[in-house]
Amino acid sequence: LQAFIKTLTGKTFTVEMEPSDTIENLKAKIQDKEGIPPDQQRLIFAGKQLEDGRTLSDYNIQKESTLHLVL
């Protein structure tokens, strides 16, 4: 599935991932794409901060969901 990552500066980019991917995997993909170390990334979806060990499906993240990236 493709999801949108929106930063506080208003920049939006897309990442490809599977519902079974962990938040940790997602942070690694963001690092590959944007060069931001995972330990500096905080991802917010539906008002909740996402925990590394959980999966996208745990948070009911669907295709074309928008996640907010806070540094």
Rank of each mutant, 00 (worst) to 15 (best):
Q2R: 14
Q2G: 05
Q2F: 14
I5L: 04
I5Q: 01
K6E: 10
T7E: 04
T7Y: 14
L8A: 14
L8C: 14
T9I: 06
K11G: 06
K11H: 13
T12I: 13
F13L: 06
F13V: 04
F13I: 09
F13S: 00
T14P: 06
T14A: 09
E16T: 11
E16R: 08
E16Q: 12
E16L: 12
E18C: 11
P19K: 08
D21R: 02
D21V: 03
D21T: 05
T22E: 02
T22D: 02
T22K: 07
I23Q: 01
E24N: 07
E24W: 14
E24V: 06
E24L: 15
E24G: 14
E24I: 10
N25S: 11
N25R: 14
N25G: 08
N25E: 12
N25K: 14
L26C: 01
L26V: 06
K27T: 02
A28M: 14
K29W: 06
K29L: 10
I30Y: 01
I30S: 00
Q31S: 12
Q31A: 14
Q31N: 09
D32I: 13
K33P: 00
K33C: 06
E34I: 15
E34N: 09
G35T: 02
G35F: 04
I36C: 03
I36F: 13
P37N: 06
D39E: 11
D39V: 07
Q40P: 01
Q40N: 09
Q40K: 11
Q41F: 14
Q41P: 01
L43N: 00
L43A: 00
L43R: 00
I44W: 15
F45H: 08
F45K: 03
A46L: 11
A46P: 01
G47D: 06
G47Y: 04
K48R: 12
K48W: 07
K48E: 12
K48D: 06
K48N: 10
K48L: 13
K48A: 10
Q49K: 09
Q49E: 15
Q49R: 09
L50A: 02
L50R: 00
E51P: 02
E51S: 06
D52K: 03
D52V: 05
D52Q: 04
D52W: 03
D52P: 07
G53I: 06
G53F: 11
T55C: 05
T55I: 07
L56W: 06
S57C: 04
S57L: 11
S57D: 09
D58Y: 15
Y59C: 03
N60V: 07
N60Q: 08
I61V: 09
I61S: 05
Q62V: 13
K63H: 15
K63D: 15
E64S: 12
S65W: 07
S65K: 07
S65Q: 10
S65R: 06
T66L: 11
L67Y: 03
L67G: 01
H68M: 14
H68Q: 09
L69D: 00
V70W: 11
V70C: 07
L71Y: 11
L71S: 08
L71D: 06
